Simulated assay, not measured.
Amino acid sequence: MKVADFDFDLPPDRIAVRPAEPRESARLLRITADGLSDRTIGDLPDLLRAGDLLVVNDTKVIPARLVGRIGEGRVEVNLIHAVDDHTWECLARPGKRFRPGSTVVFGALVAHIIAKAEDGTITLSFDVAGAALMAALDRVGTMPLPPYIARKREPDDQDRTDYQTAFAERTGAVAAPTAGLHLTPTMLGRLDAMGVERVAVTLHVGAGTFLPVKVDDTDDHRMHAEWGEVSAHAAARINAARAAGKRIVALGTTALRLIESAATPAGTVAPFGAWTDIFITPGYRFRTADLLLTNFHLPQSTLFMLVSAFAGTARMKAAYAHAVAQGYRFYSYGDACLIDRVDPGS
């Protein structure tokens, strides 16, 4: 299908540059087969049920944006993929300054350029590894805000908490699973008290989630790969909930893509620990989640294609038109929607 089929008008001022405060005040658009309703995140306990299983992504974002120097020239890199415990593939600018054999100095952190790909991606080998490298990144790095936010302002110390979910435990993401940013410990306590269950999976979100689709037809697009894990315990929890007739609620597209990657043809979820490049477009039949809580995504993005697959393209275009008209805030720090799954043909 044509990528242009997933276009819509989005005024630039609808892209949020800071999260709502308090978080529960963020707006929430409820999207069902019967229509739309305007709510807030604070209403979430009224929209879920005791026994629902909330599947969350416990990845932790690293301070992956680094500003440094090659000689006297200022440069910037964003880490995108770990090759090993001291080597990373990176996006870099200005690209002409990065030549294999050169040294990049990020304050007290030093790296050497060992390769440069045709697409401009570079490979850096750092002088420290493992936990020492993570500690150095904490000292000299900043949070890797999406380009749609970074073009409007510089990352700052507030982003170290704002751009990290309450579930963040397993280090490895270079982008946040942003639907999870809405759920504070207070909200999680309310959901726990009413009997909403919760299980964690891990998808280390990559910078490719920000990359635009540059082809005309979805058949020609190749998704970036991201590493994920569904433990045997998590798979068993999801399968038990499904067998008991309980609803599975995916918190974000990252959790949804991962459990779909781990799903069997029979609709159960198997333990999983691998790279996934699953690309979901309309016509796909979901095997796991019944509801999806997610932020509002950008025009012609793979994530808008995914939500269109989940609930129908016409329904999602109408919902997004409503959100734009009503002043909802879009993207990583923006508002959210809670969507019922509508299978193709139903």
Rank of each mutant, 00 (worst) to 15 (best):
D9Y: 10
P19V: 11
P19Y: 12
E21H: 10
E24Q: 13
A26M: 07
L29C: 09
S37T: 14
S37F: 05
D38L: 05
R39A: 10
D43L: 03
L53N: 04
L66Y: 12
R69T: 15
R74H: 12
E76G: 02
V77Y: 02
I80A: 13
D85V: 11
D85C: 09
G95Q: 09
K96G: 04
R97C: 09
R97G: 13
R99A: 14
A108E: 15
M134D: 14
L137M: 10
R139V: 14
R139D: 15
T142D: 14
M143Q: 12
R151I: 10
R153E: 11
P155D: 05
R160A: 07
T161V: 12
Q164V: 05
R170Q: 13
T184Q: 11
L188R: 14
M194W: 08
V196N: 08
F210V: 09
L211V: 11
H224V: 11
A234V: 03
A240W: 02
R242C: 07
R247D: 09
R247K: 13
A255F: 08
I259D: 01
A262K: 00
A262G: 00
A263V: 03
A263W: 03
A263K: 03
G273E: 10
F279D: 02
P282G: 05
Y284V: 02
F286E: 02
R287T: 00
A289E: 07
L293P: 01
L298T: 03
Q300Y: 00
S301L: 04
Y320D: 05
G327L: 05
Y328F: 11
S332L: 09
I339Q: 01
